[in-house]
Simulated assay, not measured.
Amino acid sequence: MTKLPAVILAGGRATRMGGGDKGLRQVGGKPLLDHVIDRLRPQVGAIALNANGDPARFAAYGLPVIADSLPDWPGPLAGVLAGLDWAASQGHEAIITAAADTPFFPTDLVAELQANAGPSGLCLAATREGDKIWRQPTFGLWPVALRDDLRTALKDGLRKIVLWTDQHNAGLAFFDTHPVDPFFNVNTPEDIEEAARQMEDL
């Protein structure tokens, strides 16, 4: 069975980090992006980066770098759309997305997303705390067939991922939060220190 391609969402502006690329910040002796690629590579086929600006800064990774196709930083959904357009050009039917600032995501992410996909083929990762459900919308399974619908929604001003995924009855794949939160993401310099501590506990 052919593995799905993946798109790492690295298009954010990292304002809480003082700007720049969060994925290139060092955690535990290597860039965040390296941790993400190491976790993702065994689970998927081709990998691309969604990032804006000069793609040369990622040249060492040897991965395709695809920019948002819509202006004015419309958020992660624009990265998903860019990934879907890229996948369509390669003849793929769906993509997996992962965030560039989340180094502990599950090693069975892709299998669980596929197993729990909704009727449209969409699925988001999620965690539970008691009765509360936390969706992780930058980690998902996205069918190429919905890309034009997503493009229209973005052009109409939609920015919140779950509003769009709810419209298409996305499934949810639940993951355990122990021993660490698999979707802990690095937004601040303090988070880098916390991520390094958590790596020692794994």
Rank of each mutant, 00 (worst) to 15 (best):
N169C: 14
R135W: 01
P179T: 15
I133N: 02
W134E: 11
A125I: 06
R147F: 05
V162P: 10
P119I: 09
G171E: 01
T188R: 00
P119L: 08
I133F: 06
G140N: 07
T127L: 12
A87Q: 00
L154P: 04
R147G: 14
A82Y: 00
L113F: 10
P103K: 06
H178I: 04
A117T: 14
T97I: 05
N169Q: 15
V80L: 03
Q167E: 08
P137T: 03
D156Q: 12
F139N: 02
E112A: 14
A115V: 10
N185T: 13
T107E: 10
Q167S: 14
T107I: 15
A88V: 07
V144M: 01
N187L: 09
N185R: 10
K132P: 03
A170H: 00
W134F: 12
G157P: 05
A100R: 00
L77M: 08
L141I: 12
A125S: 13
A82R: 02
W134S: 08
N185V: 09
Q90D: 00
F184Y: 04
P189Y: 09
E129V: 11
N116Y: 06
G140T: 10
L141Q: 01
A145R: 06
W142V: 01
L163S: 11
A100C: 08
V180I: 10
T188W: 03
R135M: 15
